[in-house]
Design a protein around this nucleic acid. Structure first.
Lengths: 208, 208
DNA sequence: CTATAATTTTTCCGAAACGATAATTTTTGT
DNA sequence: ACAAAAATTATCGTTTCGGAAAAATTATAG
C-alpha cells in the first residue's frame, strides 16, 4: 500500500503531456523513458522511480515539483509573524551586521535579512558568500557595491535592487560615507528548518 | 548516467536525519524503510524510488521537497539583474502603486514589489489578495496596517516587517499621514511555466 | 462503415531496488 | 584505549520497475 497516491502523479504527468500536445511516443523519445513505462505511470500502475520522474520532468521542460504531488498545502496556511525593530535575531560578523526577520517562524522558505554593510573593501574571494538559491537585495540607504564571481561590480543606491543566483560568490561593500543598509531576501531550495540557518551565514571560507 | 544527482538526495536525507537526531535504525523503524536501503540512499548508491522517498519524508515529518533536490543548482547559476529607481515594471491599481523589481528576469521564484499604499480603509474582503505561497513585507516608511483573514489587524512601522502565508486573504492600509511605502517579496509555490527559461531544459528538447 | 494509421495498453522478461541478516568498519563516549 | 553504538558493506531472496514488442483501443481517412 503506497504512502502516496500514484494516480495523482500519473494525472499530473498526463495533464502536462496533453498540455504540450505530446503523444506517449514523442515524450518517450524526448525523455528516454519507454512508452510502456509512461503509460503505467500515467495510469497509476506503478509508483515510479526518482530517476524516471526527473527524466519526464526535464523532457517536458517543467520543474519536477509541477508534476510531483506535494504534501498538502493546508499544512501551512495560517502563519503570521511580525518582527519589530528590536525583534528578530541579530548577528554581527566582520563585514556586516545582520537582523534576521521572522526568525521564530520555522519552515519558512525565505530568509529576510536587514543588514548594515560595514565592509569598505571586498574580502578575499574565498570569504564571499555562496548558497544555493536566489537572492534579492534592496538598498534602504547609502550606496552599495555588489561584487560577484561572474560580473563587474554593480553599484546600487537607495530604492534600487538586485536579483541574482546566490550560488555565485558575492559580497557587499559600502561606498557611501554613511553606513549603507539593505534588505536582503534569500530563497533557499530547501526551506529552513532552523530560525537562523547556518548555511546562510556561512561563507565559502573553510571552517576553523 | 542518472539525470539527477543521487548524492544530493542522499545528502539531504542525511542532513535532515541528523537534524532530527535519528539513527538509521530509528528512521528505519519509523519509516518502514530498511536500514540497508537508507544507507544506500544516503550514500548515493541507489537512485531510489518515489515510494521510498515519500516514506522517509513522512517519517521525518517534513515536506517531500525538503529532501528532494528539485532544481539542481547548475540549472541557473549565473543570473543577475539590477533594477534602478525608474526601472522595473509599474502598475497602479486602486489601493496600491506597484513597482515590480527584477521584472525582466524570467524564471525567478520571488516577486519583489516596491509599493506605495494609497488605501486608507480596507476594501471588502472579497477584494483582498490571496495567492498560494509566502509573503514578506518590510515597511520602508510610514505606518501600515495589515489586515488578514485569520488575525486581528497588525500595525507595522518603518523598519518592521511581517511574514505570513499569502493564501490568507490580506490587504494593506495606510495609517500614517505620509503615504507608506513597503517592500513586499512574494514567493509562489509553483513558478510559472511561461517564465521557465528555455535554457533550463534545453538539453532535452529536440530541435524541430 | 470499414480499412488503416495512430495511439495507448498490456504482456513478458531482464534489470534494479528493496528487505533481512550478518560481518566489517567507523564513530562515539567514557 | 577500550567498549558500545552506529554506519557501511556484502549476500541473497523477493518485489518492483523499466524496456521491447505484441495486443488492444482509439482516432482518422476514404
Amino acid at each position: 500500500m503506497p504512502v502516496f497516491d500514484p494516480e495523482e502523479l500519473g494525472a499530473r504527468i498526463r495533464t502536462q503531456r496533453k498540455k504540450e500536445g505530446l503523444t506517449l511516443a514523442e515524450l518517450s523519445q524526448r525523455s528516454g523513458v519507454a512508452v510502456s513505462t509512461l503509460s503505467k505511470l500515467e495510469n497509476g500502475q506503478t509508483t515510479g522511480s526518482v530517476e524516471t520522474i526527473f527524466k519526464i520532468a526535464r523532457a517536458m521542460r517543467v520543474l519536477v515539483d509541477h508534476i510531483f504531488p506535494f504534501a498538502p498545502a493546508e499544512m501551512t496556511n495560517g502563519r503570521l509573524l511580525v518582527t519589530r525593530r528590536d525583534g528578530g535575531e541579530r548577528l554581527a560578523i566582520e563585514h556586516y551586521d545582520y537582523q534576521l526577520h521572522a526568525a521564530g517562524l520555522i519552515g519558512k522558505r525565505m530568509a529576510p535579512l536587514h543588514m548594515a554593510i560595514k565592509a569598505r573593501t571586498p574580502p578575499p574571494i574565498e570569504e564571499w558568500s555562496t548558497h544555493p538559491g536566489e537572492e534579492f537585495a534592496f538598498v534602504l540607504c547609502g550606496l552599495v557595491e555588489l561584487n560577484t564571481e561572474h560580473y563587474a561590480p554593480v553599484r546600487i543606491g537607495a530604492g534600487e535592487s538586485v536579483y541574482f543566483d546566490s550560488i555565485m560568490k558575492h559580497c557587499y561593500v559600502a561606498l557611501s560615507d554613511e553606513e549603507p543598509r539593505l534588505l536582503s531576501v534569500c530563497l533557499s531550495e530547501a526551506p529552513s528548518m532552523k530560525s537562523a540557518p547556518e548555511n546562510l551565514f556561512a561563507s565559502a571560507a573553510p571552517k576553523p
